[in-house]
Amino acid sequence: MNSHDLSTKLVPSDLYLEIQQFYALQLKILDRGDGEQWARTFTPDGVFQAADMPAPLVGREILVKAIELQTGKHEGLVLRHWVGQLTVEQIDDDTVRAQSYVMVYVTPNRTLLSGEVHFRHHTLCDDELVRSNGSWFVRNRFVETDGEYK
């Protein structure tokens, strides 16, 4: 089934809200630059891959290192992520496929009231999420960025 198939079954509203809350928490952690906490939102063998990456990142330890590297590249900048157009398809009781568009904004300092906020890039995020012990985790994430991003 492709992402534009209108016959995708809707999930119950309480499940949809759980997934929204999961993303809100995950992005709050990411925007703080807390690589260890962000990596813990993935399964221990979780996979992150972007269309422009030569190979996927696999496992929490590798994800922490990747976030630390990205945080270093953005020294002095604050990144903010906005998730929209979230769709959730239930695979089974403890697995969903979630797709969303994510816009990334950047501001030049830690005070959003001074300095200019700029649009950085736009992505399509395709996730397989699994529930374990009442919490959701990313098992697989594939990100495709619109336009050229470096």
Rank of each mutant, 00 (worst) to 15 (best):
N2T: 00
S3H: 05
H4G: 00
D5C: 00
L6W: 03
T8M: 08
Y16G: 00
E18I: 06
I19C: 01
A24G: 04
L25H: 11
Q26P: 03
I29K: 07
I29T: 14
G33D: 06
G33C: 08
G35R: 14
E36T: 14
E36I: 08
E36F: 13
W38N: 10
W38K: 13
W38Q: 12
R40D: 14
T43H: 07
G46S: 06
V47E: 07
Q49F: 02
A55N: 06
P56K: 02
L57R: 01
V58K: 03
V58N: 01
I62N: 05
L63V: 01
L63H: 02
A66I: 00
A66N: 06
A66S: 07
L69T: 09
Q70S: 09
K73P: 04
E75S: 11
L77N: 14
L77R: 15
L86Y: 05
L86G: 03
T87L: 10
V88K: 09
V88P: 11
V88Q: 08
E89M: 10
I91D: 15
Q99K: 13
V102N: 12
V102F: 11
V104R: 10
Y105L: 12
V106F: 07
T107L: 11
T107I: 13
N109A: 12
N109R: 09
L112C: 09
L113C: 11
G115Y: 12
G115I: 13
E116D: 15
F119M: 12
L124F: 09
C125T: 10
V130I: 11
S132I: 06
N133A: 14
S135G: 06
F137D: 04
F142L: 02
E144N: 07
E144Q: 09
D146I: 04
E148C: 03
K150H: 08
